[in-house]
């Protein structure tokens, strides 16, 4: 018996399955979930004290006014500490590492990177111009709006590199501070 010349059905299935595996490796499904992991965890943690208070209230339905105020105080204390913790966790990505990762990412091309670089240089020049004119404090909100717009553009462009996109967004306050520190 000779083997047929046309490709076997099993071979076609092997190729299709391999293509699917390659695509799944290239675009991992957990990337989207990763993109919000830090912030979502902090939100969930911050939401927990509310549920605890509710449970406590249902257990002791005959609470007096004093006890209720105590509960409220506990709730606000918990709410204040958790977001602070989340804020400190957010600013952990090193800016030099971010710069390197942005330069080396394959999610955007060379010309796009140059265009982004031009925009950043323009923003730094704008900050320095306002600083020289002693108008930086007055124009800070305007410059911050430009910065937020630029960051949003970059984050949107980096849809092919969701981890870098998330890291940039998470460390936006550090980037803003470092931009303000740059002097001509």
């Amino acid at each position: 018996m000779q083997t047929p010349e046309f490709p076997n059905v099993v071979d076609i299935i092997v190729v299709v399955v391999t293509c699917l595996i390659a695509l799944m490796l290239a675009f991992p499904l957990y990337a989207d979930a990763q993109g919000f992991s830090n912030t979502d965890v902090s939100r969930v943690e911050a939401a927990e004290p509310n549920s605890n208070v509710k449970r406590h209230v249902t257990k002791v339905p005959v609470l007096k006014v004093a006890n209720v105020t105590e509960l409220k105080f506990e709730k606000t204390e918990a709410e204040e500490t958790k977001p602070e913790k989340a804020k400190t966790e957010q600013v952990t990505v090193d800016i030099d590492t971010l710069k390197t990762r942005l330069k080396e990412t394959d999610a955007i091309g060379v010309f796009t990177k140059l265009a982004i670089r031009s925009d950043i240089v323009g923003l730094v020049e704008e900050i320095n111009r306002y600083r020289k004119q002693s108008k930086l404090e007055l124009k800070k909100a305007e410059v911050r709006a430009n910065f937020d717009g630029l960051l949003l553009k970059i984050v949107t462009l980096l849809e092919g590199d969701p981890v870098l996109s998330r890291d940039l967004y998470v460390s936006r306050e550090s980037i803003w501070k470092s931009l303000l520190e740059v002097k001509a």
């Binding site: 391999t18 390659a22 290239a26 091309g109 060379v110 092919g160």
Partner: peptide, 18 residues
């Protein structure tokens, strides 16, 4: 064949994005 097409941004796309 699959992996490079999934990762790389072509020059045409790069110019259009700019």
């Amino acid at each position: 064949f699959m992996v490079p097409t999934a990762h790389a941004v072509s020059k045409a796309e790069d110019i259009a994005t700019t």
